[in-house]
Structures are given as C-alpha cells and as structure tokens.
Amino acid sequence: MSWVVGSVAFWLASWWVNTRLSAMKGSRIAGFIVPALFGISLLVLWEGMVKGFNINPVLLPAPTDIAAKFASSLPILWTDFVQTFVKGALSGYVIGCGAAFLTAIVVDRSPFLQKGLLPVGNFVAALPIIGMAPIMVMWFGFDWQSKAAIVVVMVFFPMLVNTVQGLQASDVMQRDLMQTYAATYGQSLRKLRLPAAMPFVFNGLKICTTLALIGAIVAEFFGSPIKGMGFRISTEVGRLALDMVWAEIAVAAIAGSAFYGIVAMIEKIVTFWHPSQRRG
C-alpha cells in the first residue's frame, strides 16, 4: 500500500512544483524542467501502481522491469533496430522522399499536372496505405526490401503534396523581381523557389519520419525474417513476454524521436531565415 500512497504523493508534489515553476514567467529552465518532472512523476506513478496493486507483469510490467530487460537484451534490440530502422525505414524514407521531391520538381513545369496531382495526392495521403503492406511483402519477399517498399509508398504522397505546395509558396512580387533580372527558369527555381519551398519540404520530411517507422514496423507483422522490431513485438506478445515488448517500444520511441529531432535540427539550419525559426 505504501507504494501506492508514496507514488501518488510524489505525483501530487511534482504537480505542485510544476504549478509553481510555470507561474514564474520568462525562465528558460522551467520550460525544460516542467515537462521532464511531469514525465518522471508519471513513471513513478506507473511503478507505484504496478508494485502497490501487485499487477501481473503479464498485463503491465513496471518501468524498472522494462529497464532491466532493456539493459540485459541490448544485442537483440540492436539487431532489431538495424533490421527495421536502418535497413527498412531509413532506406525507404530516403528513396520515397527523394522520388517525391524529384517528381514535384518535374511536375512543376506543368500547372495542369499540378492541379490534377494535388487533390489526388491529398486523397491518397488520407487513405490507409499501410494496408498495402501484405502486397509489398508478397512482391518483395520477407526481408527488409518489402519494408522499404511500403515505406516508399507511404511517404511518397505526403511528401509530394508538401513539395508541390512549397514550390508555389514564393509570391508574385518575388517572381516578378526574378523576371526583371532576366533569370532563367532554372535560376529562379534554384535561387528563389526552392529555398522558399524549404519550410514546406521540411514539414513533409517531419511527417514522413513517423510514417516511415510505423510502416516498417507494421509491415513486419505480415512476415519477416527472425529479426526486426515488428517481428519481435508480435512474437513476444504471443509469448506474453511484455517486458521485452515494452523494451522494443522504448527503442522505437527513442529512434522515432531522435529521427524527428535530427530532421528538425537540419530544418533549423536550412531555414534559419523563416519567421518560425527566429528567436523573438
């Protein structure tokens, strides 16, 4: 019982501290401490509830158990990570986003095609494309190639729509100015419209990071060699070894956030001029 009371007390105390901290205006550190403290207090609450109510680890393992499992099975987690993330998700992400970007530039010359592609692309982006995973597994086999293929299909349309929109983002004045400089199509594309499109391009790239990881993991539910994050999750769930599943989810979470973070960091460097990146 002391577990339950203690963890709830800790949670309440940290909430009180957070209220105090957030009332202090203008401090940079509070913006970092408050969410961190909230996350920690949730973990403590989880630990306390599991320990206090003696919840069966088959249903919900405690965070400490998951951490122990994580530490003890690092080699397995690493091979799964390489198989799913590096081979499946990353290669698919690069191919898919690259292809979409090039397609957008090719279509850029024809307003007619753009008008047709935008609605269709928006529609396809809303479809449950993940359902194509079994087809890709059938076409490209069990190994990472099929995972990369489904990732390519999943990221293509969101990326295409964003890039096409981005290429239209420069305004008429700016384009007119380029024309008065007698800039060729290539020059105005390189020097004005591509840089102006970057915020949109990175928006697409950021959306696609999550899609890529989801695609690679779910595609493994339909068939995979005996490694990979999706494979491990589905088999360990079958064996009711939930601590391993949670460890795998932790890997997915870390990989997903890091992936997103890296893309966001590149965005900051590339689009330093955009209002959303300037420091007020």
Partner: peptide
C-alpha cells in the same frame, strides 16, 4: 507524435 504508436497495437 514522433513515436510509432501503432507498434503497441498488438499488445
């Protein structure tokens, strides 16, 4: 949102 939530679906 950066976490592949779908991964926990089977669990």
């Amino acid at each position: 949102q950066t976490i592949p939530i779908l991964a926990i679906a089977p669990m």
